[in-house]
Design a protein around this nucleic acid. Sequence first.
DNA 1: AAATATTTTAATCAAATGATTAAAATCATA
DNA 2: TATGATTTTAATCATTTGATTAAAATATTT
Lengths: 204, 204
Amino acid sequence: MPGKIKASSDLSTEEKIKEAARKVFTQKGYAATRTRDIAEAAGINLALLNYYFRSKQKLFEIVMTEKMQKYFGVLAPVLNDASTSLETKVESIASKYIDLIIENPELPLFVLSELRNNPEHFIKLTEKADFLNQSVFIQQIEKKRPDIHPFHFFVSLMGLCLFPFLMKPVLQKMANMKDKAFVDMMLERKELIPVWLKAILKSK
Amino acid sequence: MPGKIKASSDLSTEEKIKEAARKVFTQKGYAATRTRDIAEAAGINLALLNYYFRSKQKLFEIVMTEKMQKYFGVLAPVLNDASTSLETKVESIASKYIDLIIENPELPLFVLSELRNNPEHFIKLTEKADFLNQSVFIQQIEKKRPDIHPFHFFVSLMGLCLFPFLMKPVLQKMANMKDKAFVDMMLERKELIPVWLKAILKSK
DNA sequence: AAATATTTTAATCAAATGATTAAAATCATA
DNA sequence: TATGATTTTAATCATTTGATTAAAATATTT
C-alpha cells in the first residue's frame, strides 16, 4: 500500500500520475488511452501507476468523478437558488460555464462521450431522477412560459453555452478560425446568451 | 480478393459486415470497438471481416466517410443557395437536421468524438478552409446583423438543433425523461427554433 | 457431373496492453 | 550510520485483439 506522506519533489508522484491521467483521459477518452501513455506523460514507470491506483479503471473513476463534479457543479447551486431571478440565473450559468470550459475545453466532449458508454457515472451526483424537474429554475421558466415545456429553454441555454466548444474543431477547419478568435467569441457569448435567452422566452 | 457478385441471402455478406460496423462503431467509437464485436453483430467469422475490408481501420474509414457525409450533407446545399431567404434556410436546416438525427441519434456524438481524435477526417469534404466564411448564409446574416460576428448565429442554430441529442442521456437521468417524450420534444423544436433564431437576430 | 472460382471457417500468430513481481533505490528514523 | 519502511524500477506474465493462413464448404461454369 502506498504511504500517504511524500517528502521530495514539487508534486507528489501520486499527483503527477493523476495529473497525467486527467490530461490523457480527457484528450483521448477511456478506450483510446493506454496506461503507458499516462505513465509516459507523468514521467514515471508503468508499474507505479498500478502500484498507486490498482488499475486503469480505478484511476479513471477518480478522474471521471472529478470531471463530472466540475461539469455539473456549476449547475446545481444555481438551479435551486430561490433568492435569485430567472434572469440572474441565466447570466450566472452562462458566465460560469463559459469560464469553466475556456479553462477546460475538452470537458464537454469527454463527459458526454464517457456518459454514452456508461450512463451510470452520474447516478452518484443526482440520486433522485426528478432533480431537474423540481428545481426552482424550471419552475421559474414554467411561470413565464406555461405554454412550452420548460426543458426546451434549459436545453437551449446549455446548448448555446456548450455546443460551440464541441464544434470547435469543425469551425477551425470549415472557417479557418484561430484559437484566440474562438476564445474571444466565447467571451462575447457571456453577454449575448442572456440577451438571447430573454428574447427566446418572449418570442411568440 | 473478394468477388463483386454474391448470389444467396437477403443481404450480401459484405453489406452485413458494413451494417454491423455502422452500428458498433457509432455506438462505442473506434477505440472501444473490437473487430470481434462487429463480426458477432454481423453473424460472421472474424476472418471474413479482414477478408472483405483488409483491416479495422479501412472498414472504419468507410463508415466514417458515410457518417460525415450524412452529418454535413444537410448543411452544404442549404448554405450556398442564393435563391432562398435567411428565414427559409433556418427553417430548412432545423427541420432536416432534426429529422436526420431522430433517425440517427448517435450521429452527432460519434462525428464530434472521432473528429477530436482525428480532425483530418473531413479535409475531404471541404478542401477550402474558408468554405463557411464565404457562404451565402453567412453573408445574409452579416447583412442583417453587421454588429455581431455571424458565426455566433450559425453556431447557435447548430447548437439548438443538435445539442439536445448530446444531452439526451443526461436528461433521461436528471429529469427522468422517456424516449417518446424526447422525440416529441425534438419535433416541437422544428417549429420553435426558427422562431427563436428570428428573435435572436432581432435582439439588441 | 467435373472443374474452377468464390466464400467461409477453424486454428493460429504476433503485437499491444493491463497487470504483477521481485529486487533495487531512496528516504526516514533511531 | 544502521535499520526499517517506502518508493521506484526492470523484467515478465497473461490476456486481449487485429490479422493471417490453409483448408473446407459453397457456388458457378463448362
